[in-house]
Design a binder for these strands. Structure first.
Length: 388
DNA sequence: TAAGAAATAT
DNA sequence: TATATTTCTT
């Protein structure tokens, strides 16, 4: 009868399948050490198939038959499949050993998409500012142990501490596990000196490898906040000196050179380069906002403010209405309030540059002046590697 | 010695 | 390309 035929074919199919499985097992046996699980899976599958062939649960068999091998896998290889699926999942390309964490990250980052939108707006260099990891090695451990923590900051700066170039993968983790780092740095904000341990494990090797070149250090947002605060106290980026900033920041391990470098970068981005935006009367470009003594682009300010608990930056006491439609180098007294806030006048050099900036200001007078390179760079949305 | 700018590295 | 480090000049 039909039913008998079906059964017969079914059994034949099973035998074929079993045979195929056995062949597969033979192949895999060579790699029994490398693929013990696969071997086990196939063995189980074979066993299950054999049971099916010998067994008499017709209905069951019919169900199985309909969908070749895959069907049977689901029905009788439940546990096997369960083990299999995650294996496939893991095959994410860019993850070395942090697959799970990565997936977590992505999930959460989706959740925080809105939030990260503001971060995207942080096209300027601030966006790339990452948490400075004072204890990279320790943090790494923490991250491994508590993968959940990394999720927290995935969106913003996503940052990481590329203390090692090899640790591309590790970077993300480190950065994401900002939480632990936040504490010590935040402590610094409360007038306690922070010790920055740069001698993380493996650093020596790389030092040797890289020669004298010191490891790149990332400026975390917290650290940058300290930097800004110091800057503010010192009357702005123009009047502050690296040494003063460093002293104010009270961050142990932070060197003058690092501060100097960061200051240079900061100035480069906040201070508009003359050439680029001279002629462009782009009305869309936002004017700089006076944040304390620092003139920043609103985007930056917003980005920073949103990226952290806005309260922190609001301490900068910026009357919301104060926008300075002036060049980055505002003539110190372009705005009465600015003048009053300004503790110290610009330096000689800056004054000498003044002629230029004034010229620029004149150009942009009335009209909104052009934007900084930061805004132009905002078009580059390569937010992927929050690399330092 | 420190600061700033530029060059260089990552 | 952006950022950090190094080097050079003042």
């Amino acid at each position: 009868m039909d039913f008998t035929d079906k059964m017969q074919r079914l059994k034949m199919g099973f035998r074929d399948y079993i045979q195929a499985l056995e062949e597969e097992r033979c192949k895999i046996q060579v790699f029994s050490k490398e693929l013990p699980l696969s071997l086990e899976l196939i063995t189980q599958a074979i066993e299950a198939c054999r049971q099916q062939v010998s067994g008499t649960t017709t209905e069951y068999n019919l169900n199985v038959q309909s969908s070749e091998c895959s069907g049977q896998t689901t029905s009788m290889e439940g546990p096997v499949l369960e083990e299999f699926i995650p294996i496939k999942k893991r095959a994410s390309p860019d993850c070395d050993d942090e697959d799970e964490q990565h997936s977590h990250k992505s999930k959460v980052s989706k959740d925080n998409n809105n939030k990260s939108n503001s971060d995207k707006k942080k096209s300027d260099w601030l966006r790339s500012v990452q948490l400075w990891n004072p204890h990279p090695s320790a943090e790494e451990d923490v991250t491994r142990k508590v993968p959940v923590m990394e999720v927290k900051r995935s969106g913003s700066g996503g940052a990481f501490q590329p203390f090692h170039k090899e640790e591309k993968a590790g970077k993300a983790r480190e950065s994401l596990s900002k939480a632990p780092t936040l504490t010590p740095v935040a402590a610094a904000a409360s007038s306690t000196a922070v010790t920055v341990n740069r001698d993380n494990a493996g650093s020596s090797k790389k030092e040797e490898k890289d020669g004298d070149r010191k490891q790149r250090r990332c400026w975390s947002q917290e650290l940058h906040k300290l930097f800004l605060q110091a800057l503010k106290e010192l009357g702005g980026a123009d009047s502050a000196t690296p040494k003063q900033i460093r002293e104010l920041m009270k961050v142990d391990g932070l060197t003058n050179d690092e501060v100097k470098s960061h200051l240079q970068k900061y100035r480069l981005h906040t201070r508009r380069p003359s050439s680029v935006n001279h002629n462009n009367a782009n009305p869309q470009t936002a004017p700089f906002v006076l944040v304390g003594n620092i003139f920043v682009q609103p985007q930056e300010y917003a980005a920073v403010a949103t990226s952290r608990s806005s309260a922190e930056l609001t301490t900068v006491a910026t009357p919301p209405g104060i926008y300075a439609p002036v060049a980055t180098h505002p003539p110190a007294f372009s705005h009465p309030l600015a003048a009053s806030i300004k503790k110290s006048p610009f330096k000689k050099v800056e004054l000498s540059e003044h002629s230029h900036s004034e010229e620029r200001a004149n150009h942009s007078e009335g009209a909104v002046h052009s934007n900084s390179p930061a805004s132009s760079s905002s078009t580059h949305t390569t937010t992927t590697s929050p690399g330092c």
